[in-house]
Nucleic acid binder design. Sequence first.
DNA 1: TTGCTTCGGTTGCCAGTGTAACCGTCTCGG
DNA 2: CCGAGACGGTTACACTGGCAACCGAAGCAA
Lengths: 150, 150
Amino acid sequence: MTKVQPRLAEFMPYRLSVASNAVSNRIAADYKARFGVNVPEWRVMAVLGDVGALTQRQLVGATFMDKVAVNRACKVLADRGLVARSPNDSDGRSHLLELTDSGREMHGQIMPLALRLEAQLLECLTAAEQRSLRKILDKLFAQVRDSDRD
Amino acid sequence: MTKVQPRLAEFMPYRLSVASNAVSNRIAADYKARFGVNVPEWRVMAVLGDVGALTQRQLVGATFMDKVAVNRACKVLADRGLVARSPNDSDGRSHLLELTDSGREMHGQIMPLALRLEAQLLECLTAAEQRSLRKILDKLFAQVRDSDRD
DNA sequence: TTGCTTCGGTTGCCAGTGTAACCGTCTCGG
DNA sequence: CCGAGACGGTTACACTGGCAACCGAAGCAA
């Protein structure tokens, strides 16, 4: 407790932010360069290709993105003909979003790329570290979610 | 390799981003509410209070922020009287930035808060996990930094 | 049915961030 | 010296992401 000031470089939230941003930027640049999509758009495509037709509301739940972000991503993807809106019979307020043929084709190219990038990123970690990271991130996220009071 | 689509939720960069953003937003809101500073401003104050007088160039190296971000943060802090610019005798292009008395006082309040927030965040992790996280984040960051080719 | 509330979605606005161009100073070769 | 290029810092501009207000449809109570 003498004079050993805590250095910024030792501050965990700072490290987390720096590492996460570096990873995100790197991957986002690849997506953008190869497919012309940004991260929100990529997330929407990934989920739609995985799960099938969803409403924007469901996409919000699946991606942890803001509803506005989801809306914008869907709009861009629809304009590019990668997803199609079909009316939702059970609720006139929303539409069902689904990949078109060309959207499904891009999804088929994008997911392997994503897995390659992930593998490339994680190759510097041992299998135990990868498992550990997964667990730790979940814990941290839950911890923040829970501490809404105080 | 049958039909097990990789779900977005299993994608590590996605998890990293979600967790990191949650942590950052939570902490940033606290800084803003209690001291009226944003993250870049907080980082500059933390470094200046720790190291002493620095140029903006040195702050860029110490915080991994863009030089524009550093400049803006310094401008705001200077306008609020928290840091002072003194001429740099050895280089007329830059100034030395240093905490003022009131800046030092705020630093004395802000760092304990930062440590409390960090402790509160990390309390959901074991000591081993905390060490592991530190190591993993460093590895990931280095990995991204290195893979600028490809 | 009518009226109120909730909800999905959309739009507009604002803060934060990155990029690019620019200015004054330094450095170094000639 | 002096001129070209590098560099620290600053400004202007474009882009991104989030919040808040708003709109139309659905749910529900009376």
